[in-house]
Every structure is written in structure tokens, then in C-alpha cells.
Nucleic acid binder design. Sequence first.
DNA 1: TTGTTTATTGCTTGATACGC
DNA 2: GCGTATCAAGCAATAAACAA
Length: 359
Amino acid sequence: MSVTIERLRALKRQAGGTAPAAHDRSDGAAEARPPGVAPSRSSSPASRAALPTRFLARADDAQASLPASTLSHGAAFTAHVLPGAGAAPGNDASTARGGSAPDPMAALRRLLETRGRRPTPPPVTRGPIDRHLPGEEIAPGLRLIETRQPFDVPPALSLAFARREGQINPRDVLFFDTETTGLAGGTGTRAFMIGAADWHHDPDRGDTLRVRQLLITTMAAEPAMLAAFAQWLRPDTVLCSYNGRSYDAPLLKTRYRLARQGDPIGLLDHLDLLHPTRRRYRGRWENCRLATIERELLRIVREDDLPGSQAPAAWLQYLRGGAATNLGRVAAHNHQDVVTLARLLLRLVVAQADADAAT
DNA sequence: TTGTTTATTGCTTGATACGC
DNA sequence: GCGTATCAAGCAATAAACAA
């Protein structure tokens, strides 16, 4: 019997709803796998004048004033700024963890060697399950994780790098990134985490980058998360993302529509850093993915970062009563993404100012 | 059997090619 | 030179195909 006929018969059985014969699928367990759960095999992977001297002195390497470690909620994740990137002493993430400072190059080598390799699954433990998540519960099933870090804010940002005229107030910018249950879009994919960062003045600490993350731990909490995120937006908010115009924003619009809530992001200005980044750095590195830009331009090496492909599984694992460990790592991953967006924006502004000054 | 690679999904933007 | 069409590149999870 030809393979084609066999496949046609299998399709016919599926269309007719009859149970497939045993030889049609030897992996019965796979059939019973709930949607969204990965199988055991994983995938592969303004011009310069507008900037004060105080800012430019350090921001010629824009990240110089930034701490490498951005986490304070204890998630199992660290990020290193490599030598040459202007990392301030003591800002290394390892210091924040209290351990001895690891060799950054070793960290980079480790990263490169493991790229694309299947992530090590969490060990099966028979002891008590750690269900602790960072942040506080602000509504049933909705957690808010908020951290702040010192971060010099320029008085105005020229968007010439994005081929836009004029300047914007940095305090209007809201960097955001979502973690979702899939890629396909449409009604089947939802965001279970929304991370946002903005420059905020803290009376005690001065200018800070405030990172707020909303995480739902029940399906029913999604409307509350959407409503909470909407409250962070003002009419003059400028959304800033990486490919968010094409991915995150449409996805959120769909979720607002399904939740029967007004779309708060459709009328807002949206700055997508993907295209100006690609315009400036295309051909310099292997690609212009955020992770590559982060590593090559900002010299950040993440350690123990949970691959994005593992995010849905981590969330679903927690929903089914599993440990919170990987979900905490998802939160850390999302946290680093929005911090990287802020640093990338400043880097693009300064690079454009330098280019303008040279011409 | 296990690990790796690739295609797929929808949308947006930018770059390039082409015709007028 | 201008307008239009086409293609590529990102976002990330998933499954199938392929390799070892």
C-alpha cells in the first residue's frame, strides 16, 4: 500500500471522527497532550545638543550608568555586561548575587556553546513544590512585580533615528513586552505576562527605570491584567517595543476585544525599535534579533535565561500545580527585555547624534 | 532514541526592483 | 523621479523532518 493512500485514509478517519487505528499513531500519549504543551523534544532554537553633558559623558556608551543586574525579586536569572561596555564596578550581576565574580568571557563562551541546544529540563523533585512567585497579588490571580533601578534620564529624546521630526519627553515613553502562550496569533494565543518599563522620578533615589510586570496565575485573571495595563497608559504615552507593532500590539488588541474592553493602545503613538535597529546594524551581525543586539551592541550576556520557547510550558506547568521556578525565570527574561529596550533606545539616539555631528 | 533544523502562522516596516 | 509590487526580517511556539 502506498504511503499516499495510507495518509489519505488517515485523513479520512480524522475527518470522520473515528478513532485512528493503532498503527496510525504509535504515540498515543502525544494525542492526549493538551494544547500548548510542548512535546518532549524542544525547538532549536534631538540632536546631540538636546542631551546634557552630564548624560553624554557617560552615554557615549549609553549603558555606562546602568547596572547589569536588573533584578531584585530573586528570580533565577542574571545578566552580565561584558568588558568594554562601560559596566560600572560592582554592577555585575554576580556581585548582586553575592557570589564570586565569574569570568565574563567564560559566560559568553558558555552562551555561544549552548545556543540552540536543548535546555536542560528541570529536575523531577519529589519534595515539596516551590509555588512562590515574585511580586504581590493585586487581584485574584493577578500579580504585580515592580522593581526600580537607577537610570539617568535625558531631558528630551530626538527620534531622528526613527526618521521622525521633533523630540519627545522620555517620561512619556513606556517600553513594553509580552510573554504569550504561542505565536500563531488570533484568538487562541493570549498574553499571560505584560512587562512595562518607564523612567520615573523617585524622591529618594532620583531618576530610576521603573519596571512593572503583570502576571496572571489563572485564566480568569486576564481581564484584570488588561485593565491594569490600560491604567498605566495616558493619551500622551509613547509605546516602545521590539517588533511590537506587528506582534505584541495586535495580540493585545485582540485580547482587549475578546475581553470586551476598549482598546487603549490603538490610538497611542508606537515606536518600534526593530526597524531603526535593522537599518543601522544590518549586516554587522548574524541578525537583528533583540537577543543578538543585546549581546553584540549592549554587551549583555544572560545567564540561566529561560528560552522564550519554554515560556508557555512554564506558565502551564504552574497552572497545573507545578513549581514556580521556571515561571520566575520567565519573569526575569521579560524584565531584562524591557530594560534592554530602554538601553537600546538611548543607544540609537546617541548613535544618530554622533552620525549627525560627523556630517 | 535523541538532538537539531526547518517550516509555519499574521502582521508591519523597510529595502529594492520595476514600470511609467 | 515617482508610485507600485515584491521580498526579507523580526516577533515565538510547535511539529515534522532529518541527522547522528
